[in-house]
Design a binder for these strands. Structure first.
Lengths: 329, 329
DNA sequence: TTGAATTGATTAAACGTTTAACCATCTTTG
DNA sequence: CAAAGATGGTTAAACGTTTAATCAATTCAA
């Protein structure tokens, strides 16, 4: 069954497609009430659905946002996606998404792919070594907002959290439960959010001997196990995880090795996980303001899209520490 | 900066847009090698990116799949989305998604919204009372595949699991740990997957006194607490949860009430959750073949899109029971 | 040496909208 | 009663592609 177009309505109403377009678009124009009525009735009768593709071609606007996250199956990004979806829907925008797996190459493919589909703008969680992609978008004057991370050397609009401050706060608390040495497990990448979390850790633990292990995103399970072995051998009695995935992998190993939490090792982690709540010694964590982050990113992006404004600003939201049993001795 | 179009390349190369289109589209046509070379060079130089919108308008194909799930922030659906994204990308398809929140009204809005955007087909996790939407799509000859659930009265292509069988298997095991009464917590809706899970429960527990409590999707926390109170008062010593969200809410209540698992109450649940693994008494669960489900749905949909085939079939995949401590007495 | 075949392109229409510019017809008004 | 204004539309071009149909120039065969 072919789809109903303006032409079909026009034919049936005995008018031109222009008239139909004016009426159904509620544009101010000189059409008699009777004709308007008739056109509207026929449109309803034929169940007319405007072709957004044609509209987009004409207007150059698709009312679509391209969302690039590291991995949509990670609860942090899934929740972010959900918030962004809802916020975008309020303004009749659709969201197209893709997962970069922290690979600059995949991210580049996604950007090109989505740009061919003429998205009006991007919300991007950028990967390591993707600066050139961001500069490309700037040069092409494509509106975008960076989320979760950004590149300090580039002037862009970003939505991030106070990684340094909140990490310090959390590690300060962790220190109270530590007598000797403290360890951290982070990703092996140079992205700002990771660096800031590490900097916060170092700042808060500067009086203590410390060990930092960094693992690859692609081999969390095996590398976290190795990292933990090392840290344990080094005698740490407190551990800070830079993300939920790292922490969950870590909990698995700690549980396997029968290490008493927090007696032998105290724990804290960034992000949330259902695991944290149900672990026998509930894990202290840093709760990111996901709702605000998503909403803010959409707002800033739509603002850029609609005003064409080039002013860049960084929105730094505040994450919250939730203290549980894992940091109490 | 305006985007580069065929016209720009044509002007620069001194040929018509048609020639450029033929060359860049690798269509068989009569153009000299020299001209081809020149056009390709200019296209590269100008960084030409074809306008997918214009292509879509012409061809009537958008290479886009509309995905409607209950809630993208639920790990089950997030994982499904990830698999679908990857599988679709293999065939150069993009995924647009939306969450229905189990509301037929939202689902209907999403379907219309995505249809205006001319998606080539849908993968839908249908909500209760959305039969008319499915019939509408059939009547409009829009290709679609139903996932996770379907409507037995409608002839559609579906990808589901063996809910009845696997629920029976799991509850059979649960029965071994139960001496008296067994309870189940399910959603208050009439969708087939829920009914089948309940039927499996009833079949396996037919020798035992049993209680089934059903809660609303929109008020899980409060209603699960009420339901559990009832079940505990009724003296159940085994519990089966119909989904991960129900189980997680249940675990919270059980933990709060200091109920010993599995000594006082044995547990099992559908789906997975990180909570299951780290609960002090790891929870037995039913693992759905998410990867196969997503891949299968995409394959069936693309097949429908490309062949225009109208043959409907139901793909019933096999879920797996993972037995843990929560069902051992 | 003429007609046919081949080569290397161009033209124009189409996809479904939007919208500026135009054109009848009727009604006022001086 | 002619010019001006108001009313109710229509025409046509444009957005960026694709593709069937056409055309001009060259080469080939008889």
């Amino acid at each position: 069954m072919k789809k109903v177009s303006l032409k079909d309505i026009a034919k049936k109403a005995g008018v031109s497609t222009a008239t139909v377009s004016y009426v159904l678009g509620n544009k101010k124009c000189r059409v008699s009430e009777a004709t308007k009525q008739r056109i509207r009735e026929i449109a309803k009768e034929l169940n007319y659905q405007p072709n957004q593709i044609a509209k987009s071609l004409k207007s150059g606007k698709t009312y679509t946002i391209g969302l690039i996250v590291a991995d949509i199956s990670n609860p942090f990004f899934a929740n972010l996606a959900r918030v962004i979806e809802d916020e975008a829907a309020k303004y009749d925008y659709t969201v197209i998404f893709g997962s970069s797996d922290e690979s600059a190459q995949k991210s580049w493919k996604l950007i090109q792919f989505l740009q061919n589909r003429q998205v009006d703008g991007f919300i991007i969680v950028p990967t390591e070594n993707s600066e050139y992609q961001i500069e490309y978008l700037q040069q092409q004057k494509v509106p975008f907002v960076l989320l979760d991370r950004y590149f300090p050397k580039l002037s862009t609009t970003n939505v991030v959290i106070n990684n340094f401050e909140v990490a310090s706060t959390m590690v300060n608390d962790l220190m109270k439960a530590s007598q000797k040495k403290i360890g951290m497990i982070a990703y092996k990448n140079s992205l700002i959010h990771m660096e800031e979390r590490i900097r916060g850790f170092q700042e808060a633990s500067k009086a203590t001997e410390k060990f930092i292990e960094r693992v690859n995103f692609n081999a969390i399970e095996t590398e976290v196990e190795l990292a933990l072995d090392k840290l344990i051998k080094n005698g740490v009695d407190a551990l800070f995880f830079a993300t939920n995935s790292l922490a969950v992998a870590g909990l698995r190993v700690l549980q396997k090795n029968n290490i008493k939490i927090p007696q032998e090792i105290a724990l804290a982690s960034f992000d949330e996980s259902e695991a944290f709540e149900f672990f026998y010694s509930p894990v202290s964590y840093i709760q990111q303001p996901i709702k605000e982050m998503g909403e803010c990113a959409v707002q800033l992006l739509l603002n850029k899209i609609n005003t064409g404004g080039t002013e860049e600003k960084t929105e730094k939201l505040t994450a919250k520490c939730v203290f549980r049993k894992s940091t109490q001795k």
